[in-house]
Simulated scan of single mutants.
Amino acid sequence: MAKQLSTEQLKQQKIAVLFGGDSAEREVSLKSGAAITNGLIKAGYNVTGIDTKGFNLAELTQQGIDRVFIALHGRGGEDGCIQGALEYLNVPYTGSGVLGSALSMDKVRSKQIFKAMDLPTADFCVVTPEDFDQQTSVNVLAKLGNKVMVKPAKEGSSIGMAIATNVAELDTALKNAFAFDKQILVEAWLSGKEFTVAVLGDEVLPPIQMETPHEFYDYQAKYQSNSTIYHCPCFLDDDRRAELKALALRAFQATGAQGWGRVDLMQDADGNFNLLEVNTVPGMTETSLVPKAAKVAGYSFENLVERIIQLSLIEEG
Score class of each variant (00 low, 15 high):
84 G>N: 06
85 A>V: 07
87 E>Q: 15
92 P>V: 04
94 T>F: 02
94 T>M: 15
94 T>V: 02
95 G>T: 04
96 S>R: 04
97 G>Q: 07
99 L>W: 06
100 G>W: 02
104 S>L: 01
106 D>T: 00
109 R>T: 08
111 K>M: 15
112 Q>Y: 05
113 I>W: 04
116 A>V: 09
118 D>M: 09
119 L>H: 08
125 C>E: 09
125 C>S: 11
129 P>E: 14
131 D>L: 13
132 F>D: 06
132 F>E: 08
133 D>M: 07
138 V>E: 13
139 N>M: 05
141 L>D: 01
145 G>S: 13
145 G>Q: 13
146 N>A: 11
147 K>V: 12
150 V>S: 02
151 K>P: 02
154 K>R: 08
159 I>A: 15
162 A>V: 08
162 A>R: 09
163 I>K: 05
164 A>R: 00
164 A>V: 03
164 A>E: 01
165 T>P: 05
165 T>V: 15
165 T>Y: 03
166 N>Y: 10
168 A>S: 15
168 A>I: 14
168 A>P: 02
172 T>R: 11
172 T>G: 08
173 A>H: 03
173 A>E: 12
173 A>Q: 07
173 A>S: 12
174 L>Y: 08
174 L>F: 03
174 L>H: 07
176 N>L: 14
176 N>V: 12
177 A>Y: 07
179 A>Q: 15
183 Q>L: 01
185 L>P: 00
187 E>C: 10
188 A>N: 06
190 L>A: 05
192 G>I: 06
194 E>M: 15
195 F>K: 06
196 T>H: 11
196 T>R: 00
200 L>C: 14
200 L>E: 09
204 V>Q: 06
205 L>E: 08
208 I>W: 05
210 M>P: 01
210 M>Y: 04
212 T>N: 02
213 P>H: 12
213 P>Q: 12
